[in-house]
Amino acid sequence: MSAAGGCVPQRRQKVFLITADQDLTNLLLSLWSRDEMDWVHFGRGRAAIETLFNEPPDLLIVDQHLPDLSGGEVASLVKSENVYRQLPVILCLGPDDLARGVDFGSIECDDFLLAPYDGDEIRARVCLTLSRAMRSLDANPLTKLPGNTSIIQRIQELIDRQEDFALAYVDLDYFKSFNDKYGFSRGDEVLLMTARVIVNIIRGFPRARTFVGHVGGDDYVFITPPEIIEDACQRIIKSFDDIVPHFYDADDKAQGFIRSTDRQGQVRDFPLMAVSIAVVLNQGGRLQHFGEASAIAGALKKKAKENPKSCYVIDRRENG
């Protein structure tokens, strides 16, 4: 069957199907090609569970009416373990199940399919569930910005399309000493503020294709066309430097540094936080792989960090 409108997974998805219903099995397997979906079929619930725990798939589709367990029980087993919670589960319900009432408060599933089954609807719901799981799994829990998986995927996509782009790695100087002095919850305030500054400044270039992600902690990534990268860096630095003093107590803000004790027990003064940006340019298909970009950025970051004030460093080498 050919892919209907946009419903193609970005990579081959491994799906566990637990059902004794042969018609449902045949229908599901007919909806995607073998390159798109890797199906593992189980006729009974108990047998599937160990495999499920050992090799969790990308998606679990489970029939509510199994010979040995209910689908809801299988779903609860999966969802009660934090390691597997993120695995999306679709429950297949019989025609009368909804009328009898399904308690979605206790049965933890992400979506359901209702018999009699319709191929187009199943396709759409499976795609929706997979992309929703991808979004929520990958989002940074603090800022809700896309995380590592999405960042790497976006960079590799741009490299593969040989598109020119500027990739910027952002991090904060003296964030750790700020956290040590004021505590992690004020640290989180600064991380949230930084995310808003980056996002809004990047979105302020409305005609450009851009991306902002949060690697974690005080590390962020953004991507813009090469033409606007310097402008973007300058604006981020300006706004960050203007706003960050307000996250310090009045006396620290006035003196312009914080005094705290380092790991060796030495009393040290730390400047107010600053932002360092390392930019890698990909022009003329110079980069082959995501790893090259991050390696170059790592070296640049060191250079940017040598400056205690906010600054950006751009790598302009034609060939890495």
């Binding site: 305030e189 503020m193 808003r196 500054v197 979105r203 302020g204 706004s239 203007d242 706003i243 996250f247």
Partner: peptide, 21 residues
């Protein structure tokens, strides 16, 4: 909701942090 209550006191800063939308 934005995660830094009581920190922002100027319209300029508020706009950068809220964004155009």
């Amino acid at each position: 909701i934005y995660g830094f209550p009581g920190r922002i006191g100027t319209v300029q800063h508020a706009l950068v942090l809220l964004g155009i939308n």
